[in-house]
Design a protein around this nucleic acid. Structure first.
Lengths: 150, 150
DNA sequence: TTAGTTGTAGTCACATCAACTACAACGTAT
DNA sequence: ATACGTTGTAGTTGATGTGACTACAACTAA
């Protein structure tokens, strides 16, 4: 019915890094605090981001930082890093009847269309950079601060 | 991580109806046979399709038929009928820290982007009609038959 | 009244997810 | 050298969702 919350979690982590990595050491404990997610799960997600070349971590000493400039990280990169590419977005029911013409061809008919949907969604995500998201976030924070001053 | 198989199941059912409803009485047993899915679950999906005004069923006597012309049924109609519109495609992690500027704003930043993705996918689905899918399927069946004759 | 069907409640097994415990491996500071 | 804080990872637990299935009331035509 839906994806895991990992895309949102990973985006949260990367935005936090973009905003704070120069000001403090960002450990999995720190990220667990801002995200409200268990530090172990933070580390699991960090592993996926590291494998995808989006962050660097320092074993032993601790701390994580972005491996690329925020303008060179897109939501598609994050999606590909944390979502399992092997599983279909819309899974087929398992045993369509091969003796029925419809049962025999349904998979091909649906797969072609689902692929279009996935490609379209992926292309949209490629247009969304972390830098842009950071700007949006800062603007949002400004708006909130101004509102609370009044 | 993924949707249920209901979109594929519902599409299978509607394609079967489009192909066979004039030739035979299509009961949930018949649909269970072509889809390989339990008749009870077929009926549950049929209920959703009926509520959405895509099919008609005859209680007592039995049998299901399309309530609209295949060219007036899109994949978006089917999606809306069987997928729960209340739940988000990408759920947010539950407890982002409200005392952290990033935790406070992450939901707004992500929601805006996810909405773009969902809208884009929905618009693609609106372009895909059942009639078109039926043509594709018939073409596929033809291809298979020609291949097996040789 | 009988037969076949729909509509729906409820159980079961299984898979996935996220929280969590536990601990080995690592690197720095003292 | 060793103590400390951290990462990386295995494994358990509880919650949730899915699909197969049983059971049965309600319905309609013959």
């Amino acid at each position: 019915m839906q994806f895991s919350s990992r895309l949102n979690l990973a985006s949260h982590i990367l935005l936090y890094l973009a905003a704070y990595q120069d000001k403090q050491k960002v450990t999995s404990e720190v990220l667990a605090d801002t995200t409200g997610v268990n530090p172990v799960n933070v580390r699991k997600t960090l592993c996926l981001l590291k494998e995808a070349g989006l962050v660097q971590t320092k074993p032993g000493v601790g701390g994580t930082s972005l491996a690329r400039d925020p303008k060179d990280i897109t939501l598609a990169d994050i999606f590909d890093a944390v979502e399992d590419k092997g599983t279909d977005l819309f899974p087929m029911h398992q045993n369509p009847n091969p003796n029925c013409p419809v049962g025999r061809t349904i998979k091909d008919v649906m797969d072609a269309r689902i692929k279009v949907l996935e490609t379209s969604m992926h292309q949209e995500m490629e247009q969304m950079t972390l830098e842009e998201m950071l700007e949006d976030m800062n603007h949002e924070i400004q708006t909130q601060e101004n509102a609370s001053k009044k």
